[in-house]
């Protein structure tokens, strides 16, 4: 990497460039570029040639577009773009051979590229606080078999595709603050699930299969408050999560659930509070 002499640099060399230069000198594999006022990858010259780096953290910047060249970082394992202004992601991300953790929470994504689910080894995917819903999920989204944690909180899902049951290794499913009207029975197939966040949705019932999950161990988390639950569930919830789970196993509940799903009840609960104030809604 040939760099011109220091005297030739603009008088105010960006802090980000300094970080890159230092990393090149020391061979550092983890790059921290948090809150550097970055708008674009153009401000990080030569970054894509630093194929040795394993972690790239760009939180709290103003980046709206990821250059597809990022896929040149063949050793990258952790990519953190929390709190930026991303409107879309390049499909090239999904081909990164070692990417295990992708954090794009608090951005402005309202779609995902076709073929997004092709990540070979992705384990943690944080898409929380964006503008996603079931309509924009690409067909292979639930083909990410290696996924351990999927955060979809603070989005606009009304339904979760039943294909979610294919995520055999999923341990954490975050669906907090969406518009979910129901959960698919296939959630019960997620044998390793130990965290289920469904608080603040429009759920009235839970599929009885949820009771198959191991949500009561000392390492488990079940968050389900702030939903318009049918009375029997709401009553059990007041007693505790374990009472809800036990209740879901009863024949009485199965009847209630089936009747509910056949649409005997009045229409779906109204949407929650106005979301127009969300930062993810801001238009450029």
């Amino acid at each position: 990497m040939s760099q011109s002499t220091v005297s030739c640099l603009p008088p105010k060399m960006s802090k980000a460039k300094k970080v890159l230069d230092e990393a090149r000198e020391t061979g550092e594999c983890e790059l921290d570029l948090v809150e550097k006022g970055l708008v674009s990858f153009e401000e990080l010259p030569g970054l894509f040639n630093m194929s040795n780096i394993t972690r790239l953290t760009l939180s709290h910047n103003k980046i709206s577009l990821i250059n597809p060249g990022i896929a040149n970082l063949l050793n990258l394992e952790i990519l953190n773009l929390s709190n930026n202004q991303l409107r879309e992601l390049p499909v090239s991300l999904s081909s990164m051979p070692k990417l295990r953790i992708l954090n794009v929470c608090i951005n402005r994504l309202d779609n995902l590229p076709r073929g997004f689910g092709a990540f070979p080894v992705l384990e943690v995917l944080d898409l929380s606080y964006n503008n996603l819903n079931e309509q924009v999920l690409p067909g292979n989204f639930f083909g990410m078999e290696t996924l351990r944690a999927l955060y979809l909180g603070d989005n606009d899902f009304e339904y979760l595709p039943k294909e979610v049951g294919q995520l055999k290794n999923l341990q954490i499913l975050g669906l907090r603050d969406n518009d979910l009207l129901e959960l698919p029975r296939e959630v019960g197939d997620l044998a390793r699930l130990r965290e289920l966040h469904i608080q603040n949705n429009r759920l009235q019932v839970l599929p009885p299969e949820v009771a198959q999950l191991d949500l009561l161990s000392n390492k488990s988390v079940m968050k389900m408050e702030e939903n318009p639950w049918v009375n029997p569930i709401a009553e059990q919830y007041l007693l505790g999560i374990s009472h809800v789970i036990e209740y879901l196993k009863t024949d009485t509940y199965k009847i209630i659930y089936n009747r509910h799903m056949q649409g005997g009840r009045s229409g779906p609960p109204p949407p929650k509070a106005d979301k127009s104030k969300k930062a993810s809604r801001v238009r450029a």
Binding site: I106, G174, V221
Partner: peptide, 27 residues
């Protein structure tokens, strides 16, 4: 979402999100 966030980052969260997280916590 059951993940740790340092104060510096939390302060940089959108106000609207922080307010909701606070309310949820208080509830």
């Amino acid at each position: 979402d059951e993940k740790p966030v340092c104060k510096k980052c939390y302060d940089r969260f959108p106000n609207e999100l922080r307010r909701r997280l606070r309310d949820a916590h208080e509830n």
